[in-house]
């Protein structure tokens, strides 16, 4: 039985209400919380290369963020359409919202004709179990509409409307995420250069993150509360991970998206090159097996990200780290501080 000292609800964490650049800093000038069995350490993200050893491998997500929030119009008047995931041939999983701050569901029946970013579209079907999400089919050039009318998906806690460039990581190469894979955001060219000089490798995956605004009531019967998202784990990354392991190095996933991509490519016995859509849910009941370490932002209570972190660190250690982070004033969310942790050594 574990002893819980704190019985009160955790105090509210501090939220990053703008990017470091909007605070007059560089993107790598955020705080780094390091969890170890001996306790927490408060460091600067710029010390990351020194915390890793020569022969360690960073696995990063190359997905770039789309200007996925479009102005839309339909029989219900004007609204906002957030494009979460492209299924192909103009078919998108979307979240219609009254406004960036005001979620749905909106009364848009199947078959309703709408237009988003000037492109005519039809509501095809509700997402099963989640009435706020709908499949929408477009008859036109969606990427062009996004480049003209789209804005990054922004949530209510931001004080400054950060431009799209601020939603791109230094690794961004393949457009497709509705929301930034934010753990990679503090990386800068100088950090990458320092890591390279130290003999730390870099390998990549792609996982296009959809909308993360799921709520506890969104759980579909019998299925975990994750939406299918496109991922690709290339052969070069599988080989780099195998080489790292053989040489005794550690594999550090940069972000929960990377953990989910790697676990999706693991067939229960080994890691294989793999490509498709995944809603692999990583939790203490289905723990991760590929990465040894994780660099992640700080996540809100009650989200699937936290289940993943609990699976990674152990629930008690994660709660201790988060209590420390709250008390020490770490900043939460996509423009905030980051957290490095390691999976307890396997028996």
């Amino acid at each position: 039985m574990s002893t819980r000292v704190a019985t009160a609800r955790p105090s509210a964490p501090a939220l990053a209400d703008r990017s470091p650049e909007s605070r007059g800093r560089q993107r790598d000038e955020v705080r780094l919380l390091v969890s170890a069995t001996t306790g927490e350490r408060d460091l600067s993200f710029r010390s990351l290369p020194d915390l890793l050893a020569p022969g360690d491998l960073l696995v990063v997500n190359e997905s770039a963020t789309l200007p996925a929030s479009l102005p839309a119009v339909g029989p219900i008047g004007e609204f906002r359409l957030h494009l979460a995931t492209e299924f192909g041939d103009g078919l998108w999983l979307t979240e219609p919202r009254w406004s960036p701050a005001r979620p749905g569901p909106l009364p848009l029946a199947d078959g309703t004709a709408i237009a988003a970013g000037g492109v005519p579209a039809t509501v095809v079907a509700r997402y099963p179990g989640i009435a706020r999400l709908a499949f929408v089919r477009f008859e036109g050039d969606v990427p062009a509409a996004m480049s003209i009318y789209g804005e990054p998906i922004r949530y209510g806690y931001l004080r400054v409307p950060e431009p799209l460039e601020r939603y791109q990581t230094v690794f961004a190469r393949v457009p497709g995420s509705a929301e930034m894979p934010s753990a990679g955001r503090p990386f800068s060219t100088r950090i990458l250069e320092a890591a390279r000089r130290r003999g730390i490798g870099i390998a990549s995956v792609v996982l296009h993150a959809g909308v993360s605004s799921l709520e506890p009531g969104d759980i579909v019967t019998g299925a975990p509360p994750l939406l299918p998202e496109p991922y690709a784990v290339p052969a070069a990354t599988v080989e780099a991970i195998a080489r790292t392991r053989r040489a005794g190095g550690r594999v550090i996933a940069v972000g929960t998206t990377v953990v989910r991509a790697l676990e999706s490519a693991h067939d229960g016995c080994s890691l294989r090159p793999s490509r498709g859509f995944s809603r692999r849910y990583v939790s203490p009941a289905q723990p991760p097996v590929v990465a040894d370490g994780l660099i992640s932002g700080l996540h809100a209570e009650g989200t699937t990200h936290l289940d993943l972190l609990d699976a990674f660190l152990g629930r008690a250690a994660r709660e201790r780290a988060y209590a420390h982070a709250r008390a020490a004033g770490y900043l939460w969310h996509e423009f905030g501080d980051v957290h490095l942790s390691f999976r307890p050594a396997r028996a």
Binding site: F87, G88, D89, L91, L93, V124, A125, R126, Y127, P128, G129, F135, V220, T221, G222, A223, L227, P228, F277
Partner: peptide, 19 residues
Amino acid sequence: SDRPLPEVTVPFWAWLLHR
């Protein structure tokens, strides 16, 4: 009634038929 309705397969058909 603990089994899901056929609608639960919609995301899969959306995926498959657009590959």
